[in-house]
Amino acid sequence: MKSYINDQMIKKFQKSLPSIRIKLGLENLSAMPDNFGVGGNTFRAYVGYVLPPSSVYRNWAKKQTNSIQKKLPVNETSSEECFINWHEKLYRFLCRYWLKQQGDSLSLAHGYKLVDLYIKWLSRYEFEDKQFVINLNKYANCAIDSQVLIKINICYSSCLPIHNPSMGHVKNKNTYDYCQQLISNFCDEAMATRLEFDYWAWKKGS
């Protein structure tokens, strides 16, 4: 697949990196907003639930954030293997909490998107140990949605046979992992990370 990578998109991505990197770990913890990185528009796709999906997510995120602030998971995110375990733990916690609150399960695509957006949100803040955000930037995944899927295809010279991609195309963990690998390969060429790709690929209001 690397032979299909669009060199012009590599250059555009690289040009954006300084402005992305300077924002990581920059914001004050006291200024944390209560949406925990997920706006109302995102939840329009979360339909058919008893409780407002935004409230359930934010209550879960508040619990996680309180726990993280008490004990930063620096060791838990210190290597790719450790991060994967921590990431999966967050996903399982969210799914269990969602099922308990809603009486209905959260789809894999929606669950991973919320976890990845939450981690992206954490990366904006200045924690006591700066290594935590360094770890997040190094190992975090990119939140997958239609906008990101379109960007992936453009970055690979539109070689993927996807018309009007959506989160519905992320059917299982294999699809999710494959998308992350495509992003990783592109980022390797640009000497960047999946988290930085997320900041670059997703545009508010698009």
Rank of each mutant, 00 (worst) to 15 (best):
F132Y: 10
F127C: 04
H87W: 15
A143R: 03
A109P: 06
Q14L: 01
C159R: 13
S123G: 09
A31P: 00
K100N: 13
S184E: 13
N85K: 15
A190W: 07
S3T: 12
P165R: 05
L94P: 04
L160S: 06
I5W: 11
K203L: 10
G39A: 08
P73M: 06
D34M: 05
T175Q: 11
G25M: 09
H163C: 07
L90D: 00
L122K: 08
Y91H: 10
N85Y: 08
V115T: 06
S16W: 04
D129N: 15
N141T: 03
Y49C: 04
Q131G: 00
E76R: 12
S158N: 15
K71E: 12
L114K: 06
W98G: 02
Y125A: 03
N153C: 01
G37L: 03
T175F: 14
A143Q: 02
N35G: 02
L26S: 15
A201Y: 05
P52K: 13
K11H: 12
E189V: 08
E76N: 10
H87L: 02
D177G: 02
W202E: 03
D34K: 11
D129C: 03
E196P: 10
Y176N: 04
S157W: 07
N28G: 06
H163V: 15
E88W: 02
G25N: 08
G48T: 14
Y156D: 09
Y49E: 00
L195S: 01
M191I: 12
L136M: 10
N6G: 02
Y118K: 03
E88H: 10
Y176D: 05
V170M: 04
Y199I: 01
A109C: 14
